[in-house]
């Protein structure tokens, strides 16, 4: 199963980004292959519609789970429609590595 985690950088040591549509990077974590891949969010600085465009991107990646700090209303509706599980983590100062370790347990 594939999981997307919003990240502020393109390394495993990068901090988890609490924003969804305007997150700088998306980390795609493949649980079965135990691989991570980083994708830059092209819409992080766009004028509007960052949430829906990011949600579309995640649907294209084929992820089944998204971990972020919060989801906007349009992103929420879109992800819901495609049966993608949304997870909200509110604690700050998490790194991508921390979250993947928690998932692996």
């Amino acid at each position: 199963m594939k999981t997307v985690i919003t990240s502020s950088g393109n390394k495993l040591s990068s901090e988890f980004d609490l924003r969804f549509g305007r997150a700088s990077w998306f980390c795609l974590y493949d649980e079965d292959a135990n691989k991570t891949e980083f994708f830059e969010n092209k819409y992080s600085n766009s004028q509007g519609g960052a949430g829906s465009k990011s949600a579309e991107f995640i649907i294209e990646l084929g992820a089944k789970k998204v971990i972020s700090g919060d989801f906007g209303p349009t992103a929420k509706n879109l992800l819901e429609e495609f049966n993608i599980q949304m997870v909200i983590l509110e604690e700050e100062n998490n790194t991508i590595d921390d979250i993947i370790k928690k998932l692996r347990k």
Partner: peptide
């Protein structure tokens, strides 16, 4: 257990926390 908030889409069968199980 871990204070994570999440949704359960129809495709997810077991009702467990996706972070800490």
């Amino acid at each position: 257990n871990c204070n994570a908030k999440f949704t359960l889409p129809k495709t997810v069968k077991e009702a467990i926390c996706p972070i800490c199980k």
